[in-house]
Structure formats: C-alpha cells, structure tokens
Design a protein around this nucleic acid. Structure first.
Lengths: 194, 194
DNA sequence: CCTACCGATCGGTAGG
DNA sequence: CCTACCGATCGGTAGG
C-alpha cells in the first residue's frame, strides 16, 4: 500500500470512521483516536471542535452519497422494474465504496444531537420515500405485486444494508455482480419458475 | 396496564433491555439503570455481578429463542420451499415477541467479552447455517434459483431482522401476516407474473 | 502539536 | 438496599 498524502483533518476523519465502526461511537474515546494517529488527545482539538463533529461528517457525508445516487437514477426516465434494478445497483455502489462509513451511518447516527438528529432522520425518510415511490408506481402500473409497500421498501433496503459487513474490496465478487444477484432475488424471488 | 409482579432481577433485566436498546450498551450507565428502577446504583450489585452480565442474559436469551424456533422447524420433515416459509414465520415470531431484546441482540452483542463473544458468534453462525441448509437443499432439489448462497442467506435474514424497529404489538398487522408478506416477497419476488 | 489540567462521570466495592 | 467512596477515564480547555 502506497502512503497516501492527505491533510490532517481527512486523516483524523478516516481513522475515526474506522474506530467508530469497530468499537461504536460511544465506546471510542478521543484518546483512542489520538493514539491511532500518533498524537496527544488535546491536539485533536486544533483540527475539530468536538467528537460529535466527526460523527456528523461521517453520517451526513454518507447521506449525501446516497442522495447523489438517487439523483442519478431519477435523472433517467425509466420504467419501475428497470429503475429499481438501477437504484439497487447505485445503492450497493455507495455502500461498497466505503464500508466503514456505511457501518457508522447505519448504526451510530442515533448519537447525533439535535438539530442534526432530526435533519438526519428526515433525510433518511426522504431516501426511503424515493424507493417507496418506485415500488408504488410499479404497483400502480401492474408490474409489481406488493401488499404493504412500507413493509416492502424497508425489508428491501435492509436486504442491502448489511453489505458493509460482508463486502471485501479484494474479494471475488464485484459490487455490480452483488447488486445483480440481489436485484434478481428481490425482483424474482428464490423460487425457480420452470 | 396492570402491574405485573416479577422478581427484582427480572425487572432489572427488562429495564436494562429497554435502555440498552434506546441508548446503546456503552452509552447506558448503571446509574441510568438504577434511576429507571428507583434505587441507587450500588444496590444493583446485590442482584448482579456486572453490567456485562445483563448484556449476556439478553443476548443469549434471544439466541436460545432463535434456537428453539429452529428446533421446532427442523422437527418437521418439510420440503425446502414450505420449510423456508415456516422458518421465516418462526423467526419473525421470535423478533416480534420481544422487540427490545431483539434490537440489543442485533446491535450490542459486540460488547460481550471473551469467551462469551466467541460463543455468541458461533451460535449465530450455526443459526445462519440452518437457513443456509434450507436454501442449499432447495437449490439442489431444483426448487430455488440462487447464485451465491451465502449472499442469499444473509440478505434474507437482514430482510427480516430490522422488524424490531417497525413492529408494534398494538399495530394493525399481526406477526403471522407480516411473515406471510415477507415470505411471499422472498420466495416470489416483487415482479408480478401475469 | 504539547504539557498540564478541569469537572463530570464511569463501573464497581466496603461496610452496614 | 443505602451511604460513602475508590481509581480510572471521559470530553474538552488554557496557555504556550
């Protein structure tokens, strides 16, 4: 691995992402973080104002990545089944692109304090609404069979969101291959139609 | 709500379950827990030896519930597609039966220390292997279409495991109705076959 | 980026 | 189940 030159703040954020993912936000101390970088805890505060600022950067950084993915998908006018496939692929791309940040995004956002906490929740709701809209239009157009759309959309997203725990960049399967299998599973199910 | 008479230790465990779920294990102090019960923090230690003992009880209690569900399913000799439906139903039942404990089980187990941590992980692996076995046998018998079985089983379980966050006992949908829709989604997918 | 330090809080114990 | 308390650790600041 080549030494990558980045500024100190980016380095701190990256180390924090890894530690928050491994130990959890609440169980990671600023002294842990400082030690991982090789400086004293007090020195961190010349680069940032608080521990929560780090959590903030990570959570909202991921939220923006998901939004960018959504905007790309929505800019194309696609029929619901193919749009859903694309939305899944882009979602998987965002997760696999930074598995540590994805894990923190999924699990540690609740340690945000207000008003960020509410902003975060509403952004997440907006993203779920984007998937919900695809399902609803697909159902209305007769493409999809769905009883309860809220149940469907949340289980669908959950079926993707654990990937940060399994995906390995050096592994055999590429993100688009993973996305393809999961799309197939979500759209056509496990039962073989003979 | 009627006042339910239980012994102190059960009461402490139940309050701990709720607090660990709401705030996370690491961010819940024994003083928080004591205050929720209405005693002093030091008094907790006449009922238990450590904070981790509580986490232990919750995590392994859930693990045993999942194992009992598995044993019920395996005691019936069923063809893979119908066995999978039943496994999903039982899994959903366990989660909906105690949503707080389910949340702690899903997210806080990593704060267990050795040797419990390793025991927990191997139990979880055994449970995943039980679902994996259903999928493998179903695939071998020509019932299922699955490319990567590990990917399939983990996304399947993830599609169920978020339910603790959504299910409300007082809500409209009963656990078996939720299980039925999710089974349908997993087995036949979202695409309508006309 | 460091040394030195703050008040608050942590899990847990002693002794009754 | 309480009062009183332990050493350790927390996020963060002052001042250089």
């Amino acid at each position: 691995m080549a030494e990558i030159i980045t500024d100190r703040k980016s380095q701190i954020t990256e180390k924090a992402t890894r530690l928050f993912r491994e130990r959890g936000y609440a169980a990671t101390s600023m002294r842990d973080l400082a030690a991982a970088i090789g400086i004293e805890a007090a020195s961190l505060y010349s680069h940032l104002r608080s521990k929560e600022e780090l959590l903030n950067r990570i959570c909202f950084g991921m939220a923006e990545s998901f939004f960018r993915a959504r905007d790309q998908v929505q800019s194309l006018q696609l029929a619901p089944p193919v749009q859903l496939r694309l939305a899944i692929e882009k979602h998987v791309e965002v997760i696999t692109n930074d598995v540590n940040a994805s894990a923190v995004f999924q699990h540690e956002w609740r340690y945000l304090s207000e008003p960020d906490l509410s902003v975060f929740k509403s952004m997440r709701g907006e993203y779920e609404a984007y998937f919900m809209d695809i399902l609803s239009r697909g159902k209305a157009a007769g493409h999809f069979q769905i009883e309860n759309e809220k149940l469907a959309v949340l289980s669908l997203l959950s079926a993707l969101n654990w990937l940060y725990d399994w995906y390995r960049p050096e592994g055999r399967l590429q993100p688009h291959e993973i996305a393809a299998q999961l799309s197939e599973q979500v759209l056509n199910g496990l039962i073989k139609k003979s």
